[in-house]
């Protein structure tokens, strides 16, 4: 066989050469570049991590929000946050191989970072106004209430830490990270995008706020799917929550 520039790939099983449009190896029939491997067969077995994470966290949040089991005020906020961080880290470590590429910074584009920040701040303004219009407290849907921190030494700093930094890192790591990855193994990327955003809205335990939480989740999930990174989502989430916190803090509306 003469050297042929038409060959652009080689079979991983038998080493035969193949053309750029070939999907299977002509010699052994193996698929040349299999797309993201979908788990076949039992849906619930493949979905176990996602379902366990969702219902475990949902249960804890319900206990925190609806029962007096947790200490009230600042202390309770710290306890539930720490529990959440531990759970998310455990699940993230379990899926670390899938998550590692999402932290690559080499593909980050400055223009997109700026656009994400601008979009997040604009979004926080629009949603704060909408929430005011339908007369519902925004801090009711984010679990994190700036007034909880008023008695601490540095209320603004602690608000930012618990309301902006922590959710931006750990909610993104959970919903756009391992939950999204787990769903992608059982359904199409678009299916994973919609389900993860729906669960993101549902988990906040306020049905009305789903009206804006699901679209926010969709935006972050789209950024994760389109650019294969968690950074835009984390940056956007931080600035969105920062916008909401500042609006609440200074009573802008």
């Amino acid at each position: 066989m003469t050297a042929n520039s038409d060959y652009t790939q080689a079979c991983a099983r038998c080493g035969s050469l193949a053309g750029p449009h070939d999907i299977f190896c002509g010699q052994c029939g193996r698929e040349l570049a299999p797309a993201l491997q979908q788990a076949r067969g039992d849906a619930f077995a493949a979905l176990t991590p996602a379902l366990v994470y969702y219902f475990l966290t949902l249960f804890l949040l319900m206990v925190y929000k609806f029962t007096p089991a947790f200490p009230s005020g600042f202390e309770g906020q710290v306890v539930i946050s720490l529990i959440d961080i531990v759970i998310v880290i455990a699940f993230a470590l379990h899926a670390r191989q899938d998550l590692a590429p999402l932290f690559s910074v080499s593909q980050l584009r400055f223009r997109l970072v700026v656009l994400t920040i601008a979009g997040a701040l604009a979004g926080s303004l629009v949603i704060a106004a909408l929430a005011k219009f339908i007369n519902i407290s925004i801090s009711d849907d984010v679990f994190y209430d700036p007034y909880l921190f008023q008695d601490t030494q540095y209320p603004m700093l602690i608000s930012i830490l618990f309301i902006c930094v922590q959710p931006a890192i750990f909610e993104e790591l959970a919903f756009r990270g391992f939950l999204f990855g787990n769903l992608q193994r059982v359904t199409s990327p678009l299916g994973a995008l919609y389900i993860s955003s729906f669960l993101f809205g549902l988990m906040h335990l306020s049905y009305i706020s789903m009206i804006w939480l699901v679209p926010i989740g969709l935006a972050f999930a789209y950024l994760r799917l389109r650019y294969n990174t968690l950074w835009y989502g984390m940056i956007g989430h931080f600035f969105y929550n920062l916008g909401i916190t500042l609006i609440e803090y200074y009573q802008l509306f």
Partner: peptide, 28 residues
């Protein structure tokens, strides 16, 4: 409506929604 396009994703979402709604009610 979504079940016509992606029956798996739609049914899974309803399953989780139904359980969540019932859990929330049970807490109160």
């Amino acid at each position: 409506a979504w079940a016509d396009k992606n029956p798996f994703a739609a049914t899974l979402s309803v399953f989780i929604l139904f359980i969540t709604v019932n859990l929330v009610n049970a807490f109160f």
